[in-house]
């Protein structure tokens, strides 16, 4: 493939569709990570929660007809998604309980959950299918796709809104973009959201004005688990329609990076997640150009570290400026007196 054809394929509607699809399983856990981070209980188990939800979604979706025969066919993927999300929530509850009730370090507890998820999914998959690599022997369903009517016939717009083959995006992709708006509304337009940010900013101060810190952190963790689980469902019942060992491949950690790169707010996090999604899509495109994919994969983490540095340098400069202003003010007042 020549450089021009690759370039043309990058600046095309189809490529935008690829980015949207690749970003979905980053946007959802990133929104979850944002909520937990703002509540002061950073959830580094997004990875394990996604993996577990992806696994149980596939297993229940595929074996549902065997276990609960007679339901309409469309019910089974939803049943799978439901069980997947529940599994993710149970794992999150374990973290929340161990951290908030038993005094466990939130990072170590979450790390344990990641380890549990990566081992547990393979362990159960082998017991069920005799395969350690993937559930390819199971016929697992996908969550439905939504096709927006009428736009399909419009050349570029149709591809952007309904995917490059005009088959529509998975319903979870819509959920992902919707979640950004909902998380924004929740954080900045509800009482609980305000409390949540207050708890993250200073738990002692929040408690002193009567906010139930523990309850808020429970809620924040469970919301992050819910959103991460949806991301996992998207991976195994949308992006692909099977479960593979360690199929999240670090997306949970990338999502966490998106929170920091996105300056800890919903819109910034969305943009960061889209950048990471684009880098993933670009990797596949440039592979045909003999540009080493490893160099492309390195870009998002380098950008994240650079963003961390810039953010903190600016913050320090700001704090120094504030301190100087305060000092000058004090001095000038002193002179007056």
């Amino acid at each position: 493939m020549t450089f021009e054809t690759v370039l043309a394929s990058i600046f095309s509607a189809a490529f935008i569709a690829t980015i949207i699809r690749a970003s979905t399983p980053i946007i959802l856990p990133a929104m979850g990570g944002l909520i937990s981070e703002l509540a002061g209980v950073i959830n580094i188990a997004l990875e394990g929660i996604m993996l577990t939800a992806a696994f149980f979604g596939v297993v229940v979706g595929a074996l549902g007809p065997e276990w609960l025969p007679g339901l309409p066919v469309w019910v089974y993927p939803w049943l799978g998604a439901l069980v997947g999300v529940l599994a993710g929530l149970i794992l999150t509850l374990i973290i929340a309980f161990f951290h908030l009730e038993l005094g466990a370090d939130v990072i170590l507890a979450a790390l344990a959950i990641n380890i549990l998820a990566s081992g547990g999914t393979v362990f159960i998959m082998f017991a069920l299918t005799g395969d350690k690599g993937s559930t390819s022997t199971l016929a697992s369903p996908a969550m439905p796709s939504i096709i927006i009517p009428f736009v399909g016939s419009i050349p570029v717009v149709g591809q952007i809104f309904n995917g490059e083959n005009l088959t529509g995006y998975n319903i979870i992709t819509y959920a992902a973009f919707l979640s950004v708006a909902l998380v924004w509304l929740f954080l900045y337009r509800t009482r609980l959201g305000t409390h949540l940010r207050a708890v993250g900013e200073n738990p002692v101060a929040a408690a002193s004005v009567g906010i139930d810190v523990k309850r808020v952190q429970y809620i924040a963790l469970l919301m992050s688990g819910f959103l991460a689980a949806l991301g996992g469902i998207n991976l195994s019942m949308g992006y692909l329609t099977l479960f593979q060992t360690n199929m999240t491949a670090g997306r949970g950690y990338i999502a966490l990076a998106a929170v920091f790169l996105g300056n800890r707010n919903p819109l910034g996090t969305l943009i960061a997640a889209l950048i990471f999604g684009a880098a993933g899509a670009l990797e596949a495109q440039l592979g045909t150009l003999n540009i080493p994919s490893q160099l492309i994969t390195m870009i998002p983490p380098i950008v994240t570290i650079a963003a961390l540095v810039i953010y903190n340098v600016r913050r320090q400069a700001q704090m120094a400026a504030n301190a100087r202003k305060f000092q000058e003010k004090m001095e000038s007042e002193h002179k007056v007196v």
Partner: peptide, 8 residues
């Protein structure tokens, strides 16, 4: 992978 469960 059993041992990972024990580790967790």
């Amino acid at each position: 992978e059993m041992v990972l469960v024990i580790q967790a």
